[in-house]
């Protein structure tokens, strides 16, 4: 993925930032992804304030195709699909942010510690990482959520975060390994700087672009896992999510009834969020890594 900028870059931070900004503003992929994401985010954040408060309320005629009254039509029970959609978007962002955030924090903590300390600590953490890496996350989450009756979006997101960190830990560990023997880290160690400070001030800034991109990928991954859980039938019982909308559409036979307005918006919403994140990620990669810039 990204290449760690060399140590000279740490000195000329401002120059690097200006350069990154220069390329960021001219990167079509980054801007396109960001635009889609921001539009959806605004819709998810502020939409529910404007629209009806209860996405599951029975407000309109049943089984109605999109119209001026109900932009995305209504469900078989007469719920407004647009209202469900914007509430679902909000849930999607929550799952991504919380799940991706928790996974990023755990991945960084384990990756930095294992890579910097080495030795037996590394052995143990690496073993743990490998075990969680091989365990299929969705299957574990199915068992946990079904047994413990987890039916709220935040709790679901926390558990997603707890299971999806390993690949980040692994990548960060590898990068930390290669950074820790560099001269500037040795210098910091010789001057008696504490390990925590070395990690946060010397090592982490040198892979900040990578950390940010890893978070974006974790965000997208959490959204997809959350949607799968909701679709299988472990969605929230008191609110709505895009995955749960798909679940409802499938359960009440929207396919056979030809109610395309019921199952297209939620899937499109998930695809747009995750897709724009991925495209942004490619754009960022090009911004941070000169080799990849368009020639």
């Amino acid at each position: 993925m990204s290449v760690v900028p060399d140590e000279k870059a740490a000195v000329a931070t401002t120059g690097v930032r200006a350069e990154a900004l220069h390329f960021a503003l001219r990167n079509g992929k980054l801007l396109a992804g960001l635009t889609v994401l921001v539009v959806l985010l605004v819709l998810g954040l502020f939409g529910p304030m404007v629209a009806a408060a209860d996405p599951n309320a029975y407000v309109g005629p049943q089984f109605a195709p999109p119209s001026g009254e109900h932009w995305f039509g209504t469900t078989i029970f007469g719920q407004d699909i647009f209202t469900q959609f914007i509430h679902g978007l909000r849930a999607t962002f929550l799952v991504g942010l919380l799940g991706g955030g928790i996974a990023a924090v755990i991945g960084m903590a384990i990756g930095f510690t294992a890579g910097y300390r080495g030795g037996i600590v590394d052995e143990i953490l690496n073993m743990l990482t490998n075990i969680v890496l091989v365990l299929p996350a969705l299957a574990v989450l199915l068992v946990i959520n079904a047994y413990l009756g987890i039916r709220s979006i935040p709790v679901q997101a926390v558990f997603i975060g707890l299971t999806s960190w390993p690949w980040v830990a692994r990548a960060i560990r590898a990068q930390t390994f290669s950074l820790r023997s560099r001269e500037f880290v040795d210098l910091a160690r010789l001057s008696g700087v504490r390990p925590w400070r070395i990690m946060t001030r010397e090592i982490a800034p040198n892979m900040s672009s990578y950390l940010f991109m890893a978070f974006i990928l974790l965000f997208g991954g959490s959204v997809l896992i959350g949607a799968s859980l909701d679709f299988i039938g472990l969605g929230p019982t008191d609110s709505i999510s895009l995955g749960l909308m798909l679940n409802n559409a499938a359960r009440y036979n929207a396919l056979h009834l030809g109610m395309w307005w019921w199952f297209i918006p939620p899937g499109l919403g998930i695809t747009a969020v995750v897709g724009s994140l991925y495209v942004m990620n490619v754009g960022l990669d090009e911004v941070f890594n000169p080799k990849l810039r368009e020639m």
């Binding site: 559409a249 995750v274 897709g275």
Partner: peptide, 15 residues
């Protein structure tokens, strides 16, 4: 390719 990988499996299946 990016749209395909971002697509939730169940949604493409439904489509």
């Amino acid at each position: 390719g990016y749209i395909l990988t971002a697509t939730p499996y169940m949604w493409l299946a439904i489509l």
